[in-house]
Design a binder for these strands. Structure first.
Lengths: 140, 140
DNA sequence: TATTGTTATACTCTATAACTATA
DNA sequence: TATAGTTATAGAGTATAACAATA
C-alpha cells in the first residue's frame, strides 16, 4: 500500500497547467512519432503548408521558436524530403512543402485533429467552452 | 512590417495548452531563479515540507518524476543545505527540510502564490472558475 | 543599422535500461 | 518478487551569444 501525501500543488492552476500540458504532450508526441514527426516539426509543416514561401524567421516568430533552433529543425525536414527551399533574395529563402511533405502534413493534421477532439471530450461539458479562451488569456 | 501568416494552431486547445504552459513556466522559472530554485525543486521542497520523512520514491510517484531523475535533484538540494536525509530502514531514507530549507521553501511558496494569483487575474472572470477543473480533467 | 541564416553551446526536463541492496 | 536508491545515457525543447552576408 502506498503512502498518502499531503499535496497542495494540484490546487494551483499553474501547476495543473504544467501537468496537463506534460501529459497531453507525451500523448501527442507518441502519436506523431508514428509519422516520424515531433510536435514542433508538425506545427512547422502545417504553417508552411498554409503559407507557402514563408521564411524561417517568420515561422520562428509565429511559433515562438528561436531562429537558431529553426535551423536543425528545418534541416531535418529537408533531409526527410518534406520541404523545399527556394531563395527569395540574397539572404532569405522561401519554404514550401514537397509532395511527400503535403502527404505527411495531411496525415499529421488528421492525428492532431483526432487528438484535439479527444482532449476536449475529456473535459466536462460545462467547462469545455472555457478552456481555449482561458488558455489564450494566459499566453497572449 | 511583418508578414501576416495564416495560422490555425491557436484555435487548437492542445496547442494553446502547450503555449500557455510554456509562457507561464518561463515566467515562474525566472522568479524562482532569484532563490536559485527550479520549478521541480520548489515543488519537491513544498512536498517535503508538508510530509516530513517522505521517501524519494514516494515524492517521485506524487510529482510524476522518475526515480532516476530524483537523484540529481535531491543531491543538489542536499548540497545546498536545504534538505536532510535520515535512514528509515536499510533501503529507504526519509527526507526533511533543514532550517535553511524551511526558509527557502517559505520564500518559494510566497513567489508561487503571487504567481498563481497573477495567473488567475489574467483570465477573464467568466472563464476563471473553469480553468482548474478543465486542466485537472486533462491530466488525471 | 536591422535582419537572415547559421554555428556552437548549454541547461532543463523527461525517459529508459540496468545494477545493487534491501523489504 | 517487488521496491529503493543509484548510475549512465539519450532525446527533446529551449536559451544565449556570436558571426557572416545581405536588406
Amino acid at each position: 500500500m502506498t503512502q498518502q501525501l499531503h499535496d497542495p500543488l494540484p490546487m494551483l492552476p499553474g501547476y495543473a497547467l504544467r501537468r496537463a500540458a506534460n501529459a497531453c504532450a507525451a500523448e501527442l508526441s507518441a502519436r506523431l512519432a508514428t509519422l516520424d514527426l515531433r510536435q514542433s516539426e508538425a506545427s512547422v509543416l502545417i504553417l508552411i503548408g498554409g503559407n507557402p514561401g514563408v521564411t524561417a524567421a517568420a515561422l520562428g516568430r509565429q511559433l515562438d521558436i528561436q531562429r537558431a533552433n529553426m535551423v536543425p529543425l528545418l534541416k531535418r525536414l529537408e533531409e526527410a524530403g518534406l520541404i523545399d527551399r527556394a531563395p527569395i533574395d540574397g539572404k532569405s529563402q522561401g519554404l514550401a512543402l514537397s509532395a511527400a511533405g503535403q502527404d505527411r502534413t495531411a496525415a499529421a493534421h488528421a492525428i492532431i485533429d483526432a487528438y484535439e477532439a479527444e482532449l476536449l471530450a475529456r473535459v466536462p461539458a460545462d467547462h469545455r467552452p472555457h478552456l481555449l479562451p482561458a488558455l489564450a488569456a494566459l499566453w497572449r
